[in-house]
Write a protein that binds this DNA or RNA. Structure first.
Lengths: 219, 219
DNA sequence: TAGATTGTTAATCGATTAACAATC
DNA sequence: TAGATTGTTAATCGATTAACAATC
């Protein structure tokens, strides 16, 4: 019997690499829109403020996508990155919490373009449930298990008040949601099988105020 | 005459440290709300999924705030971190672009609590300008230079369509804005004296879909 | 061919962790 | 005193950069 360490092979790339992969994807899509057929690690790096070496190293985590002497074919690399990120196929997404932010997110056009489709929303306020907002039905939170199953929803956007976030997160996890994009300014305590990304709007402004008062160089 | 390197002393702490500082602040505020007088690097680390050594090291970049054998006094540390981040005083903030997202952000309560006050908004749509939304006046973008000066606004939240983002960013920079929180899915090309934080909602979901399809461990 | 650019290895750099004397 | 916890130094770890043979 061999060594039983969890998963030593095909090492997981650092999170920062995955984040840059998204940036590469976004930039490649702009390049294509502007008519470029190919690009290079140098160009991509310059556009994003990174070194050419870093661009190549990041991509090397996942395979060989370039052509020596040529560079990368934009359309091809877009497809490769989408496969890596899992967005080569569309993901249905639920929005939980239909306050101002939840309502704005239902109407946000930027998700669809990147392979995410907000197909349903949830709230507990009877003034909101049963209605349709931006063409999306708002159900009572108690229906999430059934609806998530019926629609094969694995990802949810949590846009509820901070005080409710932990409790609601537990409900949606129990309903089978595997990944949560959390806008509430709290650290969620959840099983580590559940994936979390947190966006705290006030924290983002704090990063900015720090930079401004400290006149940090070279953002 | 002394050496003229830009700013070698009091080295700028890494961005990741500043980000964690915001997390410490948020967690300390929760602890205080729950009645804690003091905490420790071990407790703070456990709550945030960090090692105790990292918490102490991060704080050590800025001074000595703890008491050996005791830990940290929550209220005191909150004040220290606010000073470091620059949020010990309130920042007036402008929102530029009053689409769904901009409107939601004007009504967001989480900013005020952390020392940011949305005092004014801008758009170019005559159906929106001249009105008041969530108690905030919406001016035409052309008024930004005057208004930003009058209200001493240094930070702005950019919530315009991707296609307009670069152009509008240049306008607000010309009006004297020093820091931009950008929600448009584009990399802004601006003088490096201007500070930027980008939040791309679709990118955040991509991080999640990657994690889910790759069953990444230990988020 | 000369010029451009990749993928990859080795070198550098920086960040995290471990350990511990000092302190309460 | 014994137990807890800091701030800090040294050790470890990982990520970025530089360099270059291979390729087109």
């Amino acid at each position: 019997m061999s060594n039983s360490r969890p998963r030593p092979p095909s090492d997981t790339p650092p999170k920062a690499v995955i984040h840059r992969l998204s940036l590469y994807l976004r930039e490649l899509q702009h390049l294509i829109r502007d008519g470029s057929e190919t690009t290079s690690s140098t160009q991509l790096g310059r556009l994003l403020g990174l070194t050419d070496a870093q661009v190549r190293k990041d991509l090397a985590h996942f395979g060989q996508f370039g052509y020596p002497g040529i560079g990368y074919r934009c359309g091809e690399l877009v497809q490769e990155i989408k496969c890596i990120l899992g967005t080569n196929q569309a993901w249905p997404v639920a929005i939980v919490g239909m306050g101002h932010l939840g309502q704005a997110l239902v109407g946000y056009r930027g998700f669809e373009q990147q392979g995410f489709q907000v197909t349903v929303a949830f709230d507990i306020d009877p003034d909101k449930t049963g209605r349709t907002m931006h063409g999306v039905e708002v159900h009572h939170l108690s229906a999430i298990e059934r609806v998530a199953r019926e629609q094969s929803i694995r990802l949810a956007i949590l846009a509820v008040p901070a005080a409710a976030a932990q409790e609601v997160a537990e409900v949606i996890i129990a309903a089978g949601i595997e990944g949560v994009l959390n806008f509430a300014p709290v650290t969620l305590t959840l099983p580590e099988t559940v994936h979390r990304v947190g966006v705290d709007l006030a924290m983002e402004l704090e990063q900015l105020s720090f930079a401004v008062v400290n006149r940090t160089q070279k953002s």
